[in-house]
Simulated scan of single mutants.
Amino acid sequence: MGRRSIDFPAWLAERVQHIEAVLDQFLPSATLAPTGLHEAMRYAVLGGGKRVRAALVYAAGEASLQPGTAASAQEIALDHAAAAVELIHAYSLVHDDLPCMDDDALRRGQPTVHVKFDEATAMLAGDGLQPLAFELLGLMPIAPALIVQATQLLARSAGSLGMVGGQAIDCESVGQALSEAQLRQMHSMKTGAMLEASVLLGGIVAGAGSAARQGLESYASAVGLAFQVVDDILDVTGDTKTLGKTAGKDAADNKPTYVSIMGLDGSRQLLKELHAQAHAALLPLGPSAAHLACIADYIVGRDR
C-alpha cells in the first residue's frame, strides 16, 4: 500500500488540527444567543477526541478521487462531510453520558456536558448538533444527487436502524447473556454504522465508482467492528486516565461485551482477523488507499 513512504502520524495530526479549525468555524459562536446552549455545543465538540471518523472521511476521499475532479470543491465537500460525522458523533456522546443512559461523569478526560452545565442543556446541545450536521451536508459544492446520497446515508446510519437503534439494544441488553451474533449486530449498529458512514461519505463526495464503493464497504465493515472490539478490550485492560473516560464501566454496569463473551484472548484473535479483512478489502484500491490502511493499523494498535 506504499505505507513505508508516508508519514501517517504527521498526516493524522494535520487532519486533526484541520478538522478542529473547520468545526470551530461551523459551530455557532458562544456569543450568539442562546449563549449557554452554544457554549455547551462547542464544549461538546471542540478540544478533544481522536477524530477517527473525520480521518476516515478524508482518507476515503483520497482513495476515491476521480480524474478531472475539481480539487478545491472536493476539499470543501470533504470538510463538510467530516464535520458532519464529528457533530453526529459528539451529539451521541453527550446523550450517551446522560444519567438516563450511561450516567458517566468523564469524557475525553473532562467533565461530561451534563456535569459541566446541566442535564437540560446537555440534552439540547445534542439536539442542536444533530441538525447542524445535515445542514452542512446540504451545503456541499457537489452534484445534488450526491448530496442526496450523502444525506440519506448519514440519516440511516445515525437513526433507529443504525447508531440510535444499537444504543437501544445496548440499553435493553444490560444484565443479559447475548450470543456473539447478537453482540455483533448490536455493535454493527451502535458503533460500526457511523464508522462505515464516514468511509462511504468520503467515497460519495469523491465520486467513487461501484467497484471502489464495494471495497470501501468491506473495509468499513471490518474497521467498524474492530473499533468496538478494541474498546471492549481497553475497558478491561486500560485505565481511566489513559482512556479519558471511566475504565471498567461496562463490567460494573453488567453490559455484554466481546471480552465477557469471548474472553480476552478470543477478542484479540477476532481483532487480528478483522485487521486482515480490512487490509484485504483495500487491495483493489491500490496505493491511493494507503491512509485507510494506516487508520486500520492505528485502530487495532490502540490495544497495544
Rank of each mutant, 00 (worst) to 15 (best):
R304H: 01
P67W: 02
S218G: 12
G202N: 06
A40D: 12
S29M: 07
H18Y: 07
R53H: 04
G215F: 12
S198P: 11
P28A: 09
G203S: 08
S267Y: 06
Y58K: 12
A177N: 10
M194G: 04
R4A: 13
G2Y: 14
D118L: 08
D232A: 10
A150K: 07
Q185R: 05
H291S: 09
S288Y: 12
E62T: 08
P131M: 07
V94R: 10
A252T: 05
K245I: 05
L178E: 03
I88W: 09
A82W: 04
W11Y: 14
G128H: 12
S188W: 02
G248F: 03
A212I: 02
K50H: 07
M140T: 04
Y58H: 10
R3N: 13
G192C: 07
M163I: 03
L195V: 10
L292A: 02
T112M: 11
E273T: 04
G166D: 12
N254S: 04
G175K: 01
A125Q: 07
R108F: 02
A168H: 15
A193C: 03
H38G: 08
G203E: 13
V229P: 00
D239E: 09
L183K: 02
A71G: 04
A81L: 08
D297P: 09
T31W: 13
L132W: 08
A211S: 14
A280V: 02
V223A: 10
R3S: 09
E14W: 02
L274K: 12
Q228A: 03
G138Y: 11
D24G: 13
S288C: 14
V229I: 14
T240Q: 02
I88N: 00
T35V: 13
A120S: 13
T31D: 15
S72H: 11
M189K: 03
A105G: 13
D102F: 08
G162I: 06
P284M: 01
I261P: 09
P144K: 01
M1T: 01
A33W: 14
S210L: 06
V148S: 05
S157D: 13
I142D: 10
L139H: 06
D235R: 00
Y43W: 04
V94E: 03
A70V: 11
Q149F: 03
E273K: 00
G266R: 05
V148W: 12
K241F: 04
F117E: 14
V236A: 11
H80V: 02
I142T: 02
L283F: 11
L87M: 11
P99N: 02
T69A: 14
G68C: 01
M186C: 06
L183F: 05
S218D: 15
I204P: 11
G2N: 15
R268G: 06
R302Q: 14
L161T: 10
L271K: 01
L200C: 12
G207L: 13
Y258T: 09
A59H: 07
S157V: 00
G202T: 12
A158T: 12
A247W: 01
A155I: 09
L146W: 01
A82R: 08
V94T: 08
H291R: 14
A81S: 03
S260E: 04
S210C: 10
G128P: 07
K241G: 00
Y258I: 04
V205W: 14
A105N: 15
R304A: 08
R302M: 03
P131S: 02
M262R: 08
T240D: 01
F227W: 04
H279T: 00
V236M: 09
Q66F: 01
L46T: 05
L292H: 08
V57Q: 00
V148Q: 02
E62P: 05
R302H: 07
L32S: 14
F26N: 06
